[in-house]
């Protein structure tokens, strides 16, 4: 069973408006690479020149921020849900 990635609105132009995309990757880093193969251009939106996740991009695995896990090395298992979400302002 694959893993699901929730695509945020600003990136849906790249995924033909698909909101939920399935990947087979074993880590977050691989998932981003896999998205890039299928939707060219998406990686540079998510990663900066050094390959790090951009500072205004938050990535979650099952609702946990990957910065509390192992960043791009964070493993993903079958059935996991990955969300990509822009930072939002205060409250």
């Amino acid at each position: 069973m694959p893993k699901k990635v929730r695509i945020p609105t600003p990136l849906r132009k790249l995924t033909n408006n698909e909101e939920l995309v399935e990947v087979n990757a074993a880590t977050i880093g691989e998932a981003i690479a896999e998205l890039q193969r299928r939707f060219p251009g998406i990686q540079e939106r998510l990663l900066d020149d050094t390959g790090a996740v951009r500072r205004f991009v938050n990535v979650y695995v099952n609702q946990e921020d990957i910065r509390f896990l192992q960043n791009q090395q964070t493993p993903v298992k079958d059935g996991d849900e990955i969300s990509i979400i822009p930072a939002i302002a205060g409250g």
Partner: peptide, 10 residues
């Protein structure tokens, strides 16, 4: 609209 489509910048 609130974020840049290219880098998610505010």
């Amino acid at each position: 609209t609130h974020v840049c489509e290219f880098d998610f910048g505010p």
